[in-house]
């Protein structure tokens, strides 16, 4: 369960996230949609406490991220494809993260196996392809067997096989009763993966609904999305931040 209340964050004069309130519930994949620069990544960073909100708050499992004693055991996140040192092996990277939250060392080999990186685990991660980097990011997110998962653009740059792998993984994680929150600007991908949707534009909430409901009144989910975000895209093109 993720609960955002009036979340606001400005960078200089640009309002990246504007009084954003939404809940993300367990048991289904919730897509986080919005045009480029609409505040998706900022929201993800606010959830993890990497950036501080100017107003409002966001709770994960009822508590703020910074209050979690062993965060990885409750929240797993993949915010960028390559959040690891290029000179360190995948196994050492995961071993360090596991040690930091008192997660048993055996779990490292489990997640490496789960994402299919066992044979590459000893190599320097800097040599990894984008797809392998994404898999390492997913492995890190799953390390603490968390009830809540956050993934920022997980299918970016993946080949079709990788995309299908992520899709199946996300749906199976949600089916296990976890909260799965996935940002994307790929509407077609969300139509296949997500059951629920949080749509934002210009940092504001545009819709918090189900895929079925949103696409019901339009020719397709894509058409419904463009109708919803039409205004914000124009704005974003002029004053985009990221």
């Amino acid at each position: 369960m993720i609960e955002a209340q009036n979340l606001t964050r400005r960078y200089g004069r640009t309002v990246a996230v504007d009084s954003l309130s939404f809940d993300v519930r367990p048991g289904s994949v919730t897509g986080f949609l919005g045009p480029n620069g609409s505040g998706k990544s900022t929201t993800m960073r606010l959830i993890l406490g990497l950036d501080r909100p100017d107003a409002g708050q966001v709770r994960v499992g009822g508590r703020r991220y910074r209050e979690l004693r062993w965060p990885l055991r409750e929240v797993g996140a993949m915010l960028e494809a390559k959040a690891f040192h290029p000179g360190r092996s995948a196994r050492s990277h995961l071993a360090a993260l596991a040690a930091g939250n008192a997660i048993p060392r055996t779990r490292v080999d489990e997640v490496l196996d789960l994402v299919g990186l066992t044979s590459a685990a000893g190599r320097r991660a800097g040599k990894f392809s984008l797809g392998m980097g994404q898999r390492l990011g997913v492995a890190a997110a799953l390390l603490g067997d968390p009830a809540v998962l956050l993934l920022d653009e997980p299918v970016n740059g993946l080949d079709p096989e990788g995309v299908r792998w992520i899709r199946n993984l996300l749906t199976s994680l949600a089916a296990q009763g976890r909260t799965v929150f996935v940002s994307s600007h790929l509407i077609s991908e969300m139509a296949l993966t997500a059951e629920r949707l949080v749509v934002i534009g210009r940092g504001r909430l545009l819709a918090n609904t189900t895929v079925a409901e949103l696409s019901a009144g339009a020719a397709s989910l894509e058409a419904a999305f463009f109708r919803l975000t039409g205004d914000s895209v124009e704005y974003a093109a002029k004053e985009t931040t990221s």
Binding site: L48, L50, Y65, L68, E80, A83, H93, L97, G100, A140
Partner: peptide
């Protein structure tokens, strides 16, 4: 960012 996700303090 990975480090601070593990140890937010």
């Amino acid at each position: 960012r990975a480090t601070l996700a593990v140890v937010p303090r």
